[in-house]
Write a protein that binds this DNA or RNA. Structure first.
Lengths: 354, 354
DNA sequence: TTGAAAGCGGTACCAC
DNA sequence: GTGGTACCGCTTTCAA
């Protein structure tokens, strides 16, 4: 990227186009916005001239007039407050500079996947201009997403993707990379070869399968190869997680490492404690919540892979706003690089959230 | 953070204040902006009323009128292009939504610390409204920073701080945390106890000393404690770095880990290669540049601590703009959490930069 | 010291 | 289909 000479003269405005063509600003406006009531030929001439002059709309002026602020609804669960509140903070932060042109309305559903359809319908009915959602049940959302698309209401998914839905983009930590980082850390943490277990929710979920693929890829890439001896599906259920963790521990007395690829890591830690193996097995977990903090401080959890909700929120809102403001399309997926949180950077992370 | 009820009625404008007080909008403007030619009593009444009504300026409208866009100068070295270009990208990205109200002028100095005084003086003379700089020589910048402060030109430091300078804020990876993360990774990477060396530039530099402190803190916190047997100052000099690395390697045949806390890691890697110990010693480095990439892929470098230039750029510009736009003061220091870059997330990081 | 009024760039409405 | 123009909220100038 080479340094350009510093900025050119004065930005070209709608009036410049009008003058150059001998038409009125009203006509230019109609052409630029695909409004009805304009001759196709005139429209083309205007568009060409606009492109030739390098016209860039002045967003400030635009929103000054159209008193109707852009309304964005955000649907997120309450469930794990620390995580979702961070996401909300990121959205708020990114939205702040555009107030009052942009107004953000937060609506919560109790848990991921519960009540999201109702919220979605209400939002569409209330005429919002855009939507940020964490899809708990992509299949249920699919028909709604088509309705939204029909009325040109863009949707941005956060945290998990819903690839079958009609969405503008999705913002999330890349699951393959998340798994790969966990795998690399674990194999480096082990003194030599050693047995490793992988805990997940449902392997049917694309995200989780991707994490496993990334995890395995890392194990293979490492010279002192670790053996993946067990893949446990806990179905996001605490009881099941606990029981299956006990079973896995008993089946593999030589186990040296565990990666829990969902947020559901507490049951596994409880099982480790029950068997007196806390601190003897290297554990890598997912995300961060209050109950995990003491385990990290104590060294029971070597690292946790953090999906950076604040950044996800910021990026989701920025992408959505840019699209609504001037039609800029973001890439199909926005992938964040996950954070590795350990004892040494835990405090700083908590401070920033606090 | 509890959910607030959704937005209130219509935002309060300057006219509302004027009407409520029976004065003109001009008077309100003068009061709000500390402009001369207004009665102290009137000003106070206006300020009180504004506060009472909860007035928030409409930035869009503001910049629409004052054709004089905010000018921000950015002074960064050319030296390690990948790093500084990333920083510039972050700045550009954050500035984009505010164009053409905000214009950013990039000026480069050849290397960190070279020619920065001249650039600084030119910028002040040209009447910029704000400055983003990477201070190579804080002492030299100090008097200039006072001149800037006198004319109310805010300065934001990036990458390194210059605490003795008169600055609005500084954006950087927290050096203590950077060192602490490196220390924790290294001690976890070692199979058991083991000898470790720490390479730095000048320990007199506050940043570097902080990194060492963080590093040592982590070593102490770890149960299987590693021994820090050597602290090497390379003075950012390639030759010196190489020679001292050789010396350190020869003095410590049992060395198991190395942390290079400056960007100057290549000489150390060359020394390792020369002694046939590449891949036998766990190495943690700083930042990322093309020549380092193959070493990470090959596993010679286990991890590198990345100071996230893109984010630094974004945050620096956002903080500066917010201050120039509506006077919001950022915290004294903005600390980023460094990234841990390893083989498993290297590609994603490079992709985002490319 | 203060008020009145003219725009900034774009949108929306009315009249032709 | 098109041109003219009032107006969004704020800053700035000029006159009082």
């Amino acid at each position: 990227m080479r340094a350009r000479p510093n900025p050119p003269a004065r930005p070209v405005g709608i009036k410049d186009i009008a003058r150059a063509l001998g038409v009125s600003t009203g006509t230019v406006d109609r052409a630029l916005h695909d409004k009805p009531g304009i001759n196709a030929g005139t429209r083309q001439r205007v568009l060409d001239k606009a492109a030739a002059l390098g016209y860039r709309p002045n967003l400030a002026a635009r929103h000054l007039k159209s008193r109707t602020s852009i309304r964005v609804a955000v649907h997120l669960p309450e469930e794990i407050a620390l995580f979702w509140d961070s996401l909300r903070d990121g959205i708020r932060e990114a939205a702040a500079p555009f107030a009052p042109t942009l107004s953000v309305e937060f609506r919560n559903n109790p848990r991921l996947g519960e009540g999201e359809v109702e919220l979605f319908e209400k939002a569409l009915a209330s005429g919002v201009n855009g939507l940020i959602v964490a899809p708990g049940d992509p299949a249920a959302l699919e028909p709604l997403s088509r309705r939204a698309a029909a009325t040109r209401v863009p949707i941005v998914c956060v945290v998990t993707d819903a690839p079958t839905c009609e969405r503008l983009t999705s913002v999330s930590a890349d699951p393959f990379t998340v798994g790969a980082v966990a795998g690399e850390l674990l194999s480096r943490f082990l003194p030599g070869r050693g047995e490793i277990a992988f805990f997940t929710g449902w392997l049917g979920t694309e995200d989780h399968a991707e994490k496993l693929r990334g995890f395995e890829a890392s194990l293979e890439a490492e010279a002192r190869r670790a053996d993946l001896v067990s893949v446990v599906e806990a179905h996001d259920d605490e009881q099941a997680g606990y029981r299956r963790a006990l079973t896995a521990l008993d089946a593999h007395p030589e186990l040296k490492g565990i990666y829990v690829s969902t947020v559901n890591s507490l049951p596994v830690l409880r099982a480790l404690e029950r068997r007196g193996r806390l601190g003897k097995i290297s554990v890598v977990t997912t995300d961060l919540f209050p109950a995990l903090v003491p385990h990290i401080r104590a060294g029971h959890v070597a690292a946790t892979i953090y999906q950076r909700p604040v950044s996800q929120g910021r990026q989701a809102l920025a992408a959505l706003y840019r699209f609504l403001a001037d039609g800029t399309r973001p890439p199909k997926r926005i992938k964040l690089i996950p954070h590795v949180v350990m004892r040494s950077n835990l405090d700083q992370l908590l401070g920033r959230m606090g």
